[in-house]
Structure formats: structure tokens, C-alpha cells
Amino acid sequence: MAKIKGDILVNVERCKGCEVCITACPSSTIAMSKEVNGKGYHFAMKVNDECTGCMNCAIVCPDGVITVFRGKIE
């Protein structure tokens, strides 16, 4: 059965680790990484496959670092 799934791609070097996307995500898909990026910030990353591609994280992201994909998987 085809299912609609979402995915996000975070521009790691632009993320400032403000965590606003985590509170906006309805499916708890995003968490902060343990590693840091080039500027020393912990960055947002996808930690499970619950993403539905609702775009909430990308819309509230102050730096616009998140690209959202949505598509069918078989």
C-alpha cells in the first residue's frame, strides 16, 4: 500500500540550534544532535520516520535551514 511520507533535509552549517523546530514538530521527528557544526551549535536532525512533511518546522525556522520533501512510498 502506498503511504505518504515526509522527509527533511537540514542545512547543518546554517542551523543555530534554537530548538524552535522541536516544539513545532507534531510527530517528535526532530531532535538536537550531540555533535556540533562549524560554528559550535548543536544542530537539528531527524531522529525517526514519523515525519509527514507538514512543513511546520521549516515555517518557524528563523534561518530557513530546513527543506521539506513529501512523497509516496510503496
Binding site: K5, G6, D7, M55, I66, T67, V68, F69, R70, G71
Partner: peptide
């Protein structure tokens, strides 16, 4: 999913 045609935002 991670393809150009699936970008929604």
C-alpha cells in the same frame, strides 16, 4: 522521498 520533485518547502 528525497528528490527534487518531492520538495514541498
Amino acid at each position: 522521498i528525497r528528490k527534487d520533485e518531492n520538495i514541498v518547502y
